[in-house]
Design a protein around this nucleic acid. Structure first.
Lengths: 197, 197, 197, 197
DNA sequence: AATGAATGAGCCTTCATTCAT
DNA sequence: TATGAATGAAGGCTCATTCAT
């Protein structure tokens, strides 16, 4: 029973995710979600009353989906290997058009911004992801330094810088437009800055 | 006549700018602009038929406003001085809440994105600004290198990297939220990377 | 212009009045009023945003309509004549089914009651009408006493008593149902209490 | 089984009564009753299919509750004593805000009125109560007259007049609003009219 | 009998857009 | 040109009522 209800909820989120990926956040209406999930207007309201709640729930259900396509690495992978893989994933994310929530996420946060809604940090998964990203990179850089692969005087600073640069690329790709070559160039520049000559 | 019409148009843009700065792009309706400019509904439609046209026109009229608050520099300013000033302006821009079009611009581009509207590069002032920013930085870096103030192996790459990082900071400030101290840290990191020890 | 707008407003109120008379207050939707006045949904909202506002406006526009059907009296009418006429009018009002706002008024006040909305006494026309009714009756009774037609020790008390009795008859007619004969009996009883034997 | 079912029915009515007392008749939805009785939606529908049916059943179950708070009278009570007590009860009823079905009853009858539903007199308990009230008062007045306490030429007429006045006070208290002092004045006026000077 | 998820009709409200003046 | 009243489509929300379990 609780089971069934949970299933439906998941089903709605699954359908909604597609809608958000396709139309962003601000363009999505309750009706869009009704249409996408083939349920009744009232039926949807049984589970969610606002688009923003649905989006928030979608974000919270993303965790599990996240590692989806990561190529697995061999045991003896070097820091450079891992960094290269990370950059490859980031590139994919930056350029991904289909099935990406990126714009929707930005729009969602702008929306919260204007509605003056604050998400408690503990529930703010995007922020957590960002900060986790910094930590992972920092550790990776330190590992690379220890292994004599990387050179970096301020691993923490470098990690932050990389994450903000990636954020900049992500948003620029959705606004100014950015070619694959340009992304490659930027990512290459970052890696160059780390690798010992 | 053309004169009069032009005046009214400018007046509308001036009023609209305030509205966009306050409410972003997506939250603004024709009615908001009518209300802000004390103009008649029909009157507005004589000049513009869509909110996006108005926003586009606001962007195109921004050029003149841009250098507004730049502190002037002495003749003999060093590259470091200029870079420091640039960073100070960027910091202001990143953290500015009032009277900033930043969110509106992102929303506008997302909107174009979903409407599949492409702006010809020549008319895309924001993109041009971004690219101009890269050029200016590149030149500045080269000047600094020549003067023995900076060290950098790839001025062009560095300039791009800085611009994307700033973009990342700007969008993060409007989504994840970012403290002044964190901005300082990031900007300091960038400068550190340039200045010779 | 202000003229035109006022005309439309009056027109809406006129149509609404019919609707309220037919369906009461609680059963009336904005759509009913739209339908009754052959204007557009949005057009109605230009003038009124809630059914209760429309009803309130209808009440406030009733004043002028009020004396509509009063039979005129000869100059030399006695207090008894006037009282008889008053009672005749009251009887009509009590039994009137078509075109009466009585139930709507009760429903409206109940509605305000539950919404905890208080009408400032000065704007509460129904209350004023009631109190005016008491004053008029009191004066009439005093006149009748002076003329030796009536006998009454407490004209003010009698006037209040009559008004509440009439109110009771009015509401009973819409709830319990009441025959014309029963109304006659009650009104006759009141008059008997005044007229000297 | 019939027993069990009856219990549940009574339980629903008990809960519903509270809801009607609090929200009137028109504001009550099936959902309100479901919520108030911790019963399932479907479960409620097994017993009642409309709010009006529930309200009707509540009214019919009120009989037993009615005499609830009547102060008991000594054996040798005079007609005046009884009348005074009656008036005291009426005053309480007129002014009672909490736990009163008064408005709900009016709304219910208005509702029937508009739905053109007629209750057969035999089942119309409110009407019967009203008529019983008249009879009781009439007898009381006659008793008072016999005992030399009251003076009244038309006990039947007086009884009806009193009941309608009380009805008027009751409805006025819920619409125009009425102070305790004003109620006292009216009730006093009625008693004055009976008691021999 | 009992449950409560699901349905869909009905109402409310806001806007972009038009058009007579 | 300018005005602003009017239109109607689009979206939001709530409830009575049904129905599979």
């Amino acid at each position: 029973m609780g089971e069934k209800s949970g299933q439906k909820r998941s089903y709605i989120l699954e359908c909604s995710r597609r809608v958000f990926a396709e139309k962003g956040f601000r363009n999505v209406t309750m009706q869009d979600i009704v249409a996408a999930s083939n349920i009744s207007r009232g039926g949807l309201y049984l589970h969610f009353t606002r688009v923003e709640d649905i989006f928030s729930a979608v974000l919270n259900s993303e965790e599990s989906r996240d590692g989806e396509s990561t190529d697995s690495l061999p045991e003896e992978a070097t820091a450079s290997d891992i960094l290269a893989l990370f950059m490859k994933e980031q590139k994919k994310e930056i350029l991904k058009k289909k099935n990406s929530l990126t714009i929707a996420i930005y729009e969602y946060y702008f929306h919260l911004n204007y509605k003056k809604i604050k998400i408690p940090p503990k529930e703010n998964l995007i922020k957590q992801q960002f900060e986790t990203g910094i930590l992972i990179l920092e550790n990776l850089i330190r590992d690379g330094i220890s292994a004599g692969e990387f050179y970096c005087e301020d691993p923490r600073g470098m990690a932050g810088n990389i994450m903000y640069t990636l954020e900049g690329l992500k948003v620029a790709a959705r606004t100014l437009g950015i070619s694959e070559a340009a992304v490659d160039k930027e990512l290459f520049y970052i890696m160059q800055g780390l690798i010992m000559e």
